[in-house]
């Protein structure tokens, strides 16, 4: 296989459920070794796209090739080389942590002895060795997620699909998951993940697409997207309740753009401190001020006019 050949190649990919169009003609290419992200709010079509890539959901229209094969015909052969970590953990509650990995390995036809060895390595990798004999139920959310990730790696896949890998986890658990995924990336495993967390996309993805309403609205590396669709810095202003609309009019001309959100006003500027001086110059006294670097959240807001997590 040449490095030029993409692992995933989608052209005009469509998924419809009855009248509802979940994915509306997207083009995607994922190259070996990269970490590729689908970013978007709930209902953007990320999970439907992931299920099509995972060969468990036939595309309604368009062209899709995974690992150079056709999912309609070669489903089992493709899935043999994929690792899938679904949005909701579907671990086996009747089995122990270790058995979850060994029985899953058997679905790939991995011999029992190899499966046991793989399970031991992976438990070590996701730091669950001490819980190997425990049932799944008492594990914390973060532990379950790590176990699901370990399960996705049991067949040493060429391509790992992670659907919202850290949704619902507390900050500490998220960082642990990120750290493990980062290691995988360094080992050269190709990762495809969906997320509605900006920080996650910025941390993990080499390249990403922003999805909204089943379409791709932007594509590039996190840095490129921020440079293209946002400014260097953002000033977040909070005012006393109900006075926002009046204030908003008085901010015209400061920075490149002003966004008024229900709870705060965002100023897109090159230099935050200079902008604040201007704000004070207009005799406005916000209740709180935060100057920060611009991120993907701002890209999304710019592209769709909406915030990502509501």
């Amino acid at each position: 296989m040449t490095t030029a050949q993409p692992l995933i190649q989608a052209r005009g990919l469509v998924k419809r459920f009855g009248d509802f169009t979940a994915v509306d003609g997207i083009d995607v290419e994922v190259r070996p070794g990269e970490a590729f992200g689908f970013l978007g709010p709930n209902g953007a079509g990320k999970s439907s796209t992931m299920r099509m890539i995972g060969c468990v959901s036939p595309p309604t229209a368009g062209e899709l090739r995974i690992l150079g094969m056709d999912p309609r015909r070669d489903g089992p052969a493709i899935r043999a080389r994929l690792g899938v970590c679904p949005q909701l953990d579907n671990l086996d509650p009747e089995l122990t942590v270790r058995e979850n990995l060994t029985t899953y390995a058997r679905y790939f036809g991995i011999p029992r002895r190899v499966a046991a060895q793989r399970a031991a390595e992976l438990l070590d990798f996701v730091q669950l060795t001490e819980r190997a004999g425990s049932k799944v139920e008492p594990l914390s959310g973060g532990m379950k997620r790590r176990l699901t990730i370990a399960r996705a790696l049991v067949n040493s896949p060429d391509l790992v699909l992670l659907d919202e890998p850290t949704t619902g986890l507390d900050p500490q658990a998220r960082h642990l998951v990120w750290e493990r995924l980062f290691r995988l990336k360094r080992q050269g495993v190709t990762l495809v993940l969906t997320t509605h967390y900006m920080d996650e996309a910025e941390q993990l993805c080499d390249r990403l697409v922003v999805m909204d309403g089943g379409r791709i609205v932007a594509e590039g590396s996190p840095r490129e997207l921020i440079d293209r669709y946002s400014t260097r810095e953002v000033v977040e202003l909070r005012f006393v309740v109900d006075s926002q609309q009046d204030v908003a009019g008085k901010l015209d001309g400061i920075g490149e753009r002003v966004e008024v959100l229900p709870d705060r006003i965002l100023l897109y500027v090159a230099d935050g401190d200079a902008a604040m001086a201007q704000v004070h110059g207009r005799a406005l006294a916000p209740a709180s001020v935060l100057v920060r670097r611009s991120g993907l959240e701002d890209v999304f807001l710019h592209l769709t006019g909406r915030t990502l997590v509501d």
Binding site: G54, A77, R79, N90, L91, D92, E94
Partner: peptide, 14 residues
């Protein structure tokens, strides 16, 4: 209930 087969389906098993 357990969504067991959703996991199995991601493997070569049909």
């Amino acid at each position: 209930f357990m969504k067991l087969y959703d996991g199995v389906l991601a493997t070569p098993v049909r």
